[in-house]
Amino acid sequence: MSRTEDVLRRNKGNGGSLIGYFPLGYPSLKESIDAAVVMCESGVDVLELGIPYSDPVMDGIVIQQATEQALANGFRLRHTFDAIREVTSRVSAPVLVMTYWNPVMQYGQEKFASELAAVGASGAITPDLIPDEASGWIGATNNHGLDRVFLATPTSSPARTESACANSVGFVYAVSTMGITGAREDLDQKAKQVVAEVRTQSSDSMTAVGIGVSTAAQVRDINSYADGAIVGSAFVKAYQQGGLDGLRRKVSELAKGKSK
């Protein structure tokens, strides 16, 4: 049913998957669309497009500053749908949005889901929405056949991890470490424990590891026990330093982590 899940499953045993994040509207809407396309051309299997939000408590300084700039440059929520329509017409990878909850609540969750589906998005990751508060969102995403990704973390109880698995469609986002987004040199062992708990609670859920991933070696290591590695800040930084070419090089470099 879920294209995202299909892609992750298909790539499993074949080096795994790379899931790439980029903020919409950064530095402008057009440039963020081009960045998204470049990422898919150079090795990203699933796209995660961030909707800029004024109070991004799950994000480190790199993504904070990028999304703050996107807002200052005039990003509006409705641009999300224009951008995704264009991206999905140019790439075949599944496209998810990553959004804090208040913009969706204000737009109307049913309307938001319906318009996401209409422009070809696969679903959404909602970092500050836990399944306990998500009954409306679960209904809306079901109505429109969208993925919805919840988080499992190193401090989640077995029951909460079970709930993240049972309520997620597409994959479960395994939070690698206690902290916010931003490249880290060493990811602790906690990522492995989170993935192991996901496997215990749900033998058939796909799960991808994110927060802090920035090297090909980490991508390889993660794909040895999980179903995908999620990279955000490292790509934004590469774009800041080297534009589309820099981004292309960084994605290609990290995609090498998928070869066995």
């Binding site: 836990i130 306990d132 919840f150 989640s156 109880s157 909460r160 939070v175």
Partner: peptide
């Protein structure tokens, strides 16, 4: 009211 926070904080 409620709890609209990242899962990372729920245990705390």
């Amino acid at each position: 009211g409620g709890r609209f926070v990242p899962e990372s904080l729920i245990a705390a």
